[in-house]
Design a protein around this nucleic acid. Sequence first.
DNA 1: TCAAGTTGTCTATGATAATAGACAACTTGA
DNA 2: TCAAGTTGTCTATTATCATAGACAACTTGA
Lengths: 241, 241
Amino acid sequence: MSMQESSGVALWRQVADGIERGIADGRFAAGEKLPGEMEIAETYRVNRHTVRRALAALAERGLVRAERGSGTYVEAQRLAYPLRSRTRFSEIVGAGGHEPRGQLIEASSDIANREIARELGLKIGAPLIRIEAVRLADRTPICVSTTWLSAERFPDAGNVFANVHSMTKLLGHYGVKDYHRASTRITAAIVDATDAARLDLPLGRPVLVVDATDVDMLDQPLVTKRSRFAAERVEFLVENG
Amino acid sequence: MSMQESSGVALWRQVADGIERGIADGRFAAGEKLPGEMEIAETYRVNRHTVRRALAALAERGLVRAERGSGTYVEAQRLAYPLRSRTRFSEIVGAGGHEPRGQLIEASSDIANREIARELGLKIGAPLIRIEAVRLADRTPICVSTTWLSAERFPDAGNVFANVHSMTKLLGHYGVKDYHRASTRITAAIVDATDAARLDLPLGRPVLVVDATDVDMLDQPLVTKRSRFAAERVEFLVENG
DNA sequence: TCAAGTTGTCTATGATAATAGACAACTTGA
DNA sequence: TCAAGTTGTCTATTATCATAGACAACTTGA
């Protein structure tokens, strides 16, 4: 008996679009709590379940995050992450007005498998230092990365990184003034349990997997790494031309 | 098992929007025949009934017209009809690149009722000439109007109009060089049977009903009329400021 | 600790959307 | 006149949309 408009656009979509507009034009700031589901339902003259459908759609796109018992919050804007040959996490995050942090999780010894040996120009089985780190913008984890360095060229690199919290500074400590990206491969996957915990990310969420190797000015490979970015927190910008 | 996208926008709406865009950007010209329902269904990968839903929505807005056994045709664009104090049907239609025509349906004698007497500044029961006319743009009927004039001021107006097919020319014949709109009232109604036939409009369609009185430069009322516009063929433009 | 307020989940119902097939009614051109 | 092609109408089925109510699970602040 309700006599719908039948505009061809589902109500939940209209609500979702309305909220998204509110986020886009700043009526709902990042990190802020949205009105309760009941309140939203009343303002849009709609059932609470319809609001939940709208919020679920926004949550799936990473725009909002629901916290049971507390409320629904506007997620931080996605970090724009340009992919250049000079890619410095600290510079990119800093340019976005955020405070970059690198936090060491674990540093350990390893030996080169075929892939890593090829990337670093080492022999299979060569001694490596493996650094597990999480990178944050302000207090939000952006990515976890596993970095491999030659243990012969960078002795004690794990301890150095623990002090400087930055790959750029670590390399500078060993006399590397500048470096750049030699190769970058991007794929995507579902986050695994350990990464999920480190990224503070629910299980089942997608991550962008970036395999990259950095070389010095003479094109000698320095480090190779595999980073897993929380897909909902970054967007990679490919700069063409 | 089809695993829909569930974008929140109904398929029929997406199809309707696509066709409307095609009309707007000229891929489908006015008067032209659209592809058959089956063909549209194939191009959009959609059921024929979904296409019919889309076409029905467009037909309801007057953008297309379906002819059984023949096809679905793009309706003429709605005539933009600015509402100014100087409102000349012939000028408006001509400005739109169409050929204005006025076709007399019937001219007869009448006497003033209270309303018309007030509008024309006459006494109730004063003799009138009533002109029923249909106005066309090219060959499309736009509106039918009933016009009342004082029989004393405009003797034999019916025959004059039959010759000149224009209210402006009719008034000029009686020495009225210029006139303008004194009052305009707009309502809407469902077309009645006789108007439907005159407008070549299906029963049940809406008409815009305009009651207007034109006055000369001394604000003396000249004519008063009630026009019924096929709502799907015109849009009135109110010019603010 | 507790009450109030929040999100999450379950069941249920009716309306709408989309698909499918069949056939009627009509137009067009050969 | 006829065959092919068109729109119109009917029945039927399945999935999504939207509403409704109840209660669980959880957080927050007093």
